[in-house]
Simulated assay, not measured.
Amino acid sequence: MRLGLLLRQSHRRAAQALDAALAPLGLAGRHFGVLLIIDRDGTSTQRDLLAQTGGDKAGMARTVAELEDLALLARDVDAVDRRLVHLRLTELGETRFREARKLAAAVGDELVRDLDDAELAHLIALLQRLHGETR
């Protein structure tokens, strides 16, 4: 199906551009996605991150461990259920995420530079519909 191939190729192009932009920070797109979710939500668990990203357990465990090794994430054991671990950004993680967000925004701008505002809004609306979002 042509649509599927175009979506896959577009995703691959965007992922490669994001990885290249984030490399000087020692990050990749998969790291950025985790940081983005935790920044948005304040804290998260590996289970929640898996549900939101559609990743696999081993890959998510590796990504979280790498972010922790970079001192960008901290683990907090839940006070009520000690089996539950909450992930949060460290101070360095917040700073690095702000830097990464600027780089990611520049990548996004470059990817859609040939679209005017109306075309971009239409593309976003169509992708949201495909994703099942009502807005």
Rank of each mutant, 00 (worst) to 15 (best):
D41K: 09
H31T: 04
E119C: 01
D48N: 10
A105F: 11
A51Y: 03
K102Q: 14
E68L: 09
A105T: 14
A20K: 09
L5I: 15
L70T: 05
V80Q: 10
R47L: 11
R47E: 14
L73F: 06
A100H: 02
D109I: 10
R47K: 12
Q46Y: 02
H31A: 04
R40K: 13
G33W: 04
P24L: 06
D81Q: 12
G93F: 02
R62Q: 13
L103Y: 01
V112I: 14
A65Q: 12
S44T: 02
G55L: 01
V112M: 06
L36A: 12
L27S: 00
D109H: 15
I37G: 00
L89G: 04
E94K: 13
V112K: 01
A21T: 03
R75P: 05
H131D: 11
A15T: 12
R2W: 12
L27V: 03
L103I: 05
G54E: 00
V112G: 00
G54D: 00
T63P: 01
H131K: 08
L126M: 10
R96F: 06
H86G: 06
L50W: 00
T134C: 07
T63W: 01
L127P: 02
D69F: 07
D19K: 01
L5Q: 15
I38N: 01
R83A: 09
D56I: 05
S10H: 14
E99S: 12
V77E: 12
E119R: 07
E66Y: 05
A15I: 08
L103K: 06
L123D: 05
T45I: 07
D117W: 04
L7V: 14
A23Y: 02
L115V: 01
R62G: 04
G59D: 04
L22Q: 01
L5E: 15
A106V: 08
D78H: 13
R47G: 04
D76Q: 12
R83M: 07
G29I: 03
A104M: 11
G33H: 04
M1D: 15
L123Q: 06
M60L: 12
L49T: 02
G26P: 06
D116V: 03
R101E: 14
L36M: 11
D56S: 07
K57V: 09
A17G: 00
L3P: 07
E110K: 09
T63Q: 10
G29L: 10
R30Y: 09
R113T: 08
R40E: 14
L36S: 11
I38H: 03
T53W: 02
P24F: 05
H122D: 13
L89E: 04
L73R: 03
A100E: 03
L73T: 02
R2S: 15
D69R: 10
Q128D: 12
A105Y: 11
G4L: 08
G54Y: 01
A125E: 05
T53Q: 05
L89P: 04
R98V: 10
V34E: 01
D39S: 14
R75G: 10
A17S: 07
L123H: 05
L84Y: 10
A51G: 02
A58H: 11
T90W: 08
I37S: 03
R135C: 07
A121H: 05
L84S: 08
Q46E: 13
G108L: 05
L127G: 07
D19H: 06
Q16A: 15
L27T: 00
R8E: 14
D117T: 11
L127M: 11
L73C: 07
A51S: 06
G33Q: 11
A125T: 07
T63S: 09
V112R: 00
I124P: 01
L22Y: 05
